[in-house]
Structure formats: structure tokens, C-alpha cells
Simulated scan of single mutants.
Amino acid sequence: MFDILMYLFENYIHNESEVYVEQNELTKELERAGFNHDEIYKALNWLEQLADLQHSDEIPYLNARADHSIRIYSQEECEVLDMECRSFLMFVERIGVIDSTTREMVIDRIFALEKSIITLEDLKWVILMVLFNVPGKEKAFAQMEDLIFEEPNGLLH
């Protein structure tokens, strides 16, 4: 499913192509690209659920606005998100790329991927997808793009 999300992101969203393609047409294109029908359905459902998160009053953590909250991860979350991923989430939150609400959206979408282990690269792309889908986060999206695509210059100490 993650491969399909990456394909969609790179071919439609990141390239600023027409995002509003009919689902049947998109499904056919993904099948022609070699993706499994069940996985296509899961990926499209993942994106639909991401869009729904923005408008949900039923999810309490999305309505909370704790500016200086500390996230305590459950054992299950620690098994999926290793220390490097959790540290990166804390880093991007501290520098203002994400806030507590978008952090929780990212974690929600990570677990919806149904992967037993998430790599740092996977996490970065999920953050980027979430930021793209949240209105008013254009600057944060650009910052996250820079974190993903910029090559470090000079020596790192």
C-alpha cells in the first residue's frame, strides 16, 4: 500500500498534476502500473481517511491544543516507531514543521499503513503527505520538503 501512496504522491501531488481524478480512472491507471487491486483500495481508503481527519470532531486529540505537550508513546507505538523515528517526530515538532495535532495525524496514518516497522524515510513521506492535506500548512510542507530533498553542504560535525 505504501508504494501506491508514494506513486500517487510523486505522480500527482508532488508534480502538481490534476489531483481530482475520478477514482475508477485512477484505479485503472494503478492497475496498469502493476499494483494489486486490494492494495489500491487500501491506499485510496488511507487517503480518504486522511482527508476525513481534518473534519473530525469525534477524535479528541485532533481538537486539543496543547502548545507544550509531551508525547508518551505506548509499547505498540514504540515497536512500530523506533527511537530514530520518535526522535525525528520530536525534532520536526520542536522546529515548528508539525504541531501536536499534525503529529497525531501522522501517527494515525502510520498505523493505518499496517506495517510492522516504519523506517525514517517512510515517516518523512507520511509527514509530507499529511502536511500537504492540511489547509494552511503550506510553509510547513515546504520546510518538510527541504528536510527530505536537500543535500547537506559542507562538513557535518
Rank of each mutant, 00 (worst) to 15 (best):
Q54W: 00
D67Y: 04
D67M: 04
L30I: 09
I107Q: 05
I117F: 02
L26H: 08
S116W: 08
I95P: 01
L53V: 07
D82K: 12
E77P: 10
N45A: 03
N63G: 07
I107N: 03
R71F: 11
V106K: 03
R32F: 12
T102I: 06
E76Y: 06
T27G: 05
L81Q: 07
V21G: 07
W46L: 02
K28S: 11
Q23C: 10
Y73D: 05
Q75F: 03
I98R: 00
M90S: 06
R109N: 08
R103K: 04
Q75K: 10
M83C: 01
F111M: 09
N24F: 10
R71M: 08
W46R: 04
E39W: 01
I70V: 11
E114S: 08
I118Y: 04
L26G: 08
F111Y: 12
E114N: 13
S116Y: 12
E104T: 02
I70H: 11
Y20V: 13
G34Q: 12
F91L: 03
I40Q: 10
E18H: 13
F88G: 00
D57R: 08
E84S: 11
L30C: 09
I59T: 09
N36W: 10
W46I: 05
E58S: 05
L53D: 15
F35I: 06
N24R: 13
L47Q: 11
E84Y: 10
S74M: 07
D108R: 05
E114M: 05
F111L: 07
D99N: 15
V106T: 15
E84I: 07
N24M: 13
V106C: 09
C78G: 05
G34I: 09
E39G: 03
E16Y: 15
E104A: 00
I107L: 11
E58I: 00
Y20R: 15
A33W: 07
S17A: 09
L30V: 08
T102P: 02
D52P: 01
R65K: 12
Q54E: 08
I107C: 05
E104V: 00
N15Q: 14
I98A: 04
V21K: 15
L47G: 06
L30G: 09
C78A: 09
V80E: 01
E58K: 03
I107P: 06
E58C: 01
E84K: 13
I70L: 11
N36S: 11
Q49I: 06
Q23H: 13
I59Q: 02
E93A: 01
P60Q: 06
S56D: 15
L89P: 05
